[in-house]
Design a protein around this nucleic acid. Sequence first.
RNA 1: GGAGGGGUGGCAGAGUCCGGCUGAAUGCACUGGUCUUGAAAACCAGCAACGGUUUACCCCGUUCGUGGGUUCGAAUCCCACCCCCUCCGCCA
Length: 442
Amino acid sequence: MLDAKFVRENPDAVRAAMSSRGSSWSVDEFLALDEARRAIIPTVEGLQARRNAASKQIGALMQQGKRDEAEAAKAEVAGIKEEIATLDARRDELDAQVRWLLVTAENLPDASVPVGATEDDNPEVKRWGTARDFAAEGFEPAAHWDLGPALGIVDFERGVKLAESRFYVLGGAGAALMRGLINFMVDQHLDAGFKEWWLPVLANTETLFGTGQLPKFEDDLYRTKTESDGNALEGGVTAGQLYLTPTAEVTMTNLHRDEVLEAASLPRRYTAYTPCFREEAGSAGRDTRGMIRVHQFNKVEMVKFTTPDTSFDELEAMTLQAEKILELLEIPYRRIELCTGDLGFGAAKTFDLELWLPSYGDYKEVSSCSNCVDFQARRANLKYRDPENFKGSRHVHTLNGSGLAIERTIAAIIENYQNADGSVTVPTVLRPYMRGLEVISN
RNA sequence: GGAGGGGUGGCAGAGUCCGGCUGAAUGCACUGGUCUUGAAAACCAGCAACGGUUUACCCCGUUCGUGGGUUCGAAUCCCACCCCCUCCGCCA
């Protein structure tokens, strides 16, 4: 959520930022509504003050037994009340409109973010490792959606049988690989000083609002109540509604919603493994094969809470932490920086990591590390205090990053570590996590 | 699922029956001061958030789970909803 005061005082900067994002958010619409709203406030409050004063007087008069004067005052208040009611209704209306604009506004890109329109404009920042030359080795690499089932470790058909399309099942070494990767990644983050959490995968409306999934992106989420239950979300809060979380970022960031943290306790570095659920409603036809885009996937997530002065350093550190996982697994990857036009809703700056997938003949996203600055903190009312430097409290900066998305990592391992005979070598660092298994074969 | 209790300031906890200087006693925590070599203790003072106005002070408004209602006036009365707790039942 943007700071209304900031928008008011820096309309040109906001306009430019929104334009660079390709956002349709209108600064002028906001300013007009905001001005209309603020024009009414002094009038309403003046009337309220008069009403309050008169009421107090009536109480005093009643106690003194001055009935007639009290009755006269009551009559006067009746008139004021009518005026207030009219203006109040108008103010409520304007408040709601202004609030809707504020909660649906994208975050402002950081000044350092390269300007661009689409993902094609995302600059590549670095590249690590080299893709295997299968031709030189004398065989054609198979895709994970063929290799996995052939090895009996991935089963797409049974996933569909149990749930629906875009679900899958892992068996034997496949299941062990999943479990091993989760533990491997979490251990790596623990070694780097992160604190581990275990979180609910159902979350309420306030929680989803705090990180920005609501109110704009409800369609991406699985919900426990649907329109037919008479519980549709219409720009507000649906009582009792729960959502399957699309990422642990949501719950982990909201751990401190409505809290004031001590500056001395920052930065806080958190990590959690959770399953993630996404409706993927608008992605029919994209990545339909394999385990690249499924409704339920697994992810080890990193979240940080920092003071404003260190958040960009922490973003770099977080991105390096995610890269470290790929390097230990020896999977070729590249880092790209999202341009203004490709930034996510709440992000001020984002680095994506993409790993090499032979079946795509290209890099595919496996991690996204973002600094949301105070955007989520404002939504989630998440502040910190630092008595030595300022009075009161200020919003923290929040960061989140995948470390990593595991299905895509598994796909990359299967494809990059495959052998001519159809077996898959287990990456060295994972072997301790897989009871010493070195090769997955039939 | 059944029965009962409860949601008040950073925390704890009065006030609610009998509506009116109650934005709210008291304690703890916190901040400043006195005292002290220093600290503790003691004592004094301050201490909610958000919004409007303002150079600032002040002032005004809103907020006692949420929304609505009654009233000149609601933390206190009425209605609906949400949430939490305890006991019973069920259950990994």
